[in-house]
Design a protein around this nucleic acid. Sequence first.
DNA 1: CAGCATCCTGATTGATACTG
DNA 2: CAGTATCAATCAGGATGCTG
Lengths: 135, 135
Amino acid sequence: MSDTHTGVPSALEYELPRPVPADELAACPAGEVFRRVGDKWSVLLVVLLGGRPHRYNELHRAVEGISQRMLTRTLRGLEIDGLVRREVLPTVPPSVEYSLTPLGRSLLVPLSALADWAVRHEGDIRRARSDSTGR
Amino acid sequence: MSDTHTGVPSALEYELPRPVPADELAACPAGEVFRRVGDKWSVLLVVLLGGRPHRYNELHRAVEGISQRMLTRTLRGLEIDGLVRREVLPTVPPSVEYSLTPLGRSLLVPLSALADWAVRHEGDIRRARSDSTGR
DNA sequence: CAGCATCCTGATTGATACTG
DNA sequence: CAGTATCAATCAGGATGCTG
């Protein structure tokens, strides 16, 4: 890790963990992720599974508001992306347990930071909104 | 409340900055934010404006791929949420400069963390995807 | 230059019904 | 219990054309 990065002047009032690869972001890599983060269900499920593994209907009940279709779809997507692991338990009534993969757990970190920001600045946003409401 | 799950905080794997308020998240506060983050344009514009203030067509050129409609819409949304500031400069050909508000700049931090994660784990996701390609 | 209005398309989502 | 299948509605988003 070289210390001296690009000659970016310290014109930033807030410090950025990284210069933020705007190009990269525009390209695609982060785009995919932000897509996932975009839909409420994915984030919610990751967070939920971050606490504990859940079974299908357990998730259905926990979220309550999501349709089976979306629950399945979202879980599939997360599974495909390697964020969630799906394990079928050999019980008489079939049970399926969903859990976070290490990759999924690692996502939980920046996700938490964002969620934290959201909670912390919820008031600011609402105020800003009502300030220009009804126009 | 401390870490209530698996007893031993296995910091060996991944540590969570916060237990992540699943309830809060499900409620709405964060939901709004994740909505914003969801659409690629918002994030991209925030990142772009995070580097420097830009004028309308400047953004249009920078992003290049966004339609005027979406550019305007997204900027409006960000402005309403108090993340972006719109300043009309009294020039002969009207110029409008968009910049990040302090709130917007603060969002840049967790956003960068997420973008960083995305870039870092891009390969993992791609691998996971091609591994279970639904061909 | 900056921005709005209109039309149109495809992806996303929800409700419902059915199955192993 | 854990899904899949289908239909209809919604909506993000793009293209185009027109103002101040």
